[in-house]
Amino acid sequence: MPVNLANNIAGLNLKNPILGASGTFGYGTLYERFYDISVIGGFVTKALSLKPRAGNPAPRICEAPGGMLNAIGLQNIGIDRFVNQKLPKIKDKDLVIIANFFGETVDEYVEVASRLNEVDGVHGLEMNISCPNRNNEGLVFGASCQITEDVVKACRKVTNKPLFVKLSPNVADIAKFAKVCEDSGADGLSVINTLSGMAIDIRSRKPILANVMGGLSGPAIKPVAVRMVWQCYRAVKIPIFGIGGISCVEDVVEFILAGASAVQIGSMNFVEPEICKTLAEELPDLLESLGVSDYRELIGALDV
């Protein structure tokens, strides 16, 4: 019995619900040394900004129990180099390419979004709203409902491509933010970004990360992510990409049951570079063993 893995999510035609997550999949080309990336549903680029960005000093990463902390500082090659140098190498491949983007002001977000809107080969956009706002004392955009509303509405006006918003988990009530994004015109949500964290070297009494604080990812955050996907799923009608510590095919199904229409794989790409391919290959067998012929039956099918 063939199992259906295909779905149209907010206008994106995915052959399967497995995507590489932003910040762990480079600009797509890197993983070609391990496998042909057209076997997965798609991937999300490293967060792009108007101009190239150098990022934070090292150390930028460290091990954490069941995961890792990172403080890369949004290093990226900038939208122009992405469009001119990286995208041509992968745009003819049969997979969905979503450009993750950010700005330091609302105007910058709008400019990047409108530029990406014109780019052939970028199928969808994902807004990273966990970036410090230069006009608001460096507080991240996604920490305030009002600013989230402003920036999502502003970007919505300049793009007709599917627009996803990647939510920060570092808020008291994520469902409220999900609703704000839906009401502001977002086509979908990506849930969740990394959890804010920190680690200390007790001998030197210094923070391990040069940036002091970083983002926690990996299996350690999976229960938090599953919970937040479920809360968002109950709050909105728009589709959700589930993200957070997925490391095996059972995790994929767990997120789908919680309400994810598809999932993004993050840090596990670093540990097992072929993980996205493996999950896409293993999912049909697991679904069959669960008596499911179309994965869409499981979206939000949590029995409470």
Binding site: T24, L30, P59, R60, I61, C62, M68, I72, V271, P273
Partner: peptide
Amino acid sequence: RMACGFGACVGC
């Protein structure tokens, strides 16, 4: 300190 070893994490 590196996470991946092949240029994806940009940590090192």
